[in-house]
Design a protein around this nucleic acid. Structure first.
Lengths: 144, 144
DNA sequence: TCTTGAAGCTCTAGTCGCTAGAGGTATTAT
DNA sequence: ATAATACCTCTAGCGACTAGAGCTTCAAGA
C-alpha cells in the first residue's frame, strides 16, 4: 500500500492534484488508515499514469473520464476509443494550424521594425493597431 | 458618441468583455449619460481594436497593458515593443513545437488501432496507459 | 406623450485544471 | 518521548472571460 506522497513521487503527479482527481471522480477513493490517511493499492499507479499521460496528450478531463469508462468494459468494441483519439488529433492539428498563422503574423510584425525608432512610428505597435495589414485570418479560438 | 452595444458590434468584442476590460483597467472608463450608461468617443474603437488584435495574436492581458503603456509615451524608443513581440513569437514557436510532438504521438496511437477489436486489446487505450512507447517527450506545459 | 421592447446597468457566480495557504492531525525515525 | 515530516480538510485564487438575476434607461412607433 502506498501513501499519497509515494504515489505522487512515483507518478510525478502532485499531491493536491491527486486529491483533486479523486474529488472529481477521475480516480477511485482509496482506503484510509485509522488516522484517515489515504492508502493506495499498486493498481492506482497504473490508473494515475494513464490519466497523466492522457493529460499530457491534451485530452480534457471529461474525455479521460469517457476513456476510463470504456476501459471498464473490456468486451466492448474499441471503435469509440479510436474515435476519441482521432478527434483529439484533429483538435491538435487545428491548434497547430492556428498557431502557424499567428507565427506568420508575428514574424511580419517583428521583422518590420528594427527597434531603432521611437514609439510614435513603431511598426510593431502600428501593426497591432491595424488588423487590415494581416495576410492571414488568425482567429481568436487559440486556447486549449 | 457610441453606446457599448455599437462599440461591441463594430469591434466584434462582446459587451461583457468590454466591461471586463474596463474593470481591469485595459481600456479607459468612458463618460456616462445621465442615466449612467456608457458613451464612448470614436478613439475607443481604435483602442479596443488594438486590444482585440493583440489578444488574437496571443498576447496576455498583462503584456497588452505594457504595450498600451508604451503607446502612451510616443517619444520613447520602440526597442521594448519589439522585444515583447519577439518574446511572443518565441512563445508561439515553443507551443507549435510542443503540439507537433503531441501530433506525432497521436498519429502513432490512432494508426496502431483499426477499431476492429475489443477494448481489452485496444491499442489506443494501451498506449495511453503506457508512456514508455512514446517516441517523443511531450511535456505537460501545453496550455496557453 | 405614452408605451413597449430592446439595450443598458451592477453584482455574483461559474468555467477549467489545477495550485497555494491556513490551521490542524498522523505517522515515522531517532 | 520527541520532533520532523507528511498528511488531512477547507477555502480561495489564477486567467480571461461568460452567464444570469434583477433592475433601469433609452429610443422608436402609435
Amino acid at each position: 500500500m502506498l501513501s499519497i506522497g509515494s504515489l505522487s513521487k512515483q507518478t510525478d503527479v502532485k499531491v493536491p492534484t491527486i486529491r483533486y482527481y479523486e474529488q472529481i471522480g477521475l480516480i477511485d477513493p482509496p482506503e484510509r488508515t485509522e488516522g484517515n490517511q489515504r492508502r493506495y493499492p499498486k493498481e492506482a499507479l497504473e490508473r494515475l499514469a494513464f490519466v497523466k499521460h492522457a493529460r499530457e496528450l491534451g485530452f480534457s478531463i471529461e474525455t479521460i473520464q469517457a476513456l476510463i469508462e470504456l476501459n471498464n468494459h473490456p468486451d466492448r468494441s474499441c471503435t469509440e476509443a479510436t474515435t476519441i483519439a482521432q478527434e483529439q488529433l484533429n483538435n491538435v492539428r487545428a491548434r497547430i494550424a492556428s498557431l502557424l498563422r499567428l507565427e506568420t503574423e508575428l514574424v511580419r510584425i517583428t521583422e518590420g521594425c528594427n527597434g531603432a525608432g521611437t514609439v510614435s512610428d513603431c511598426y510593431v505597435l502600428a501593426s497591432l493597431a491595424d488588423h487590415s495589414n494581416c495576410k492571414t485570418q488568425h482567429l481568436e479560438k487559440t486556447s486549449f
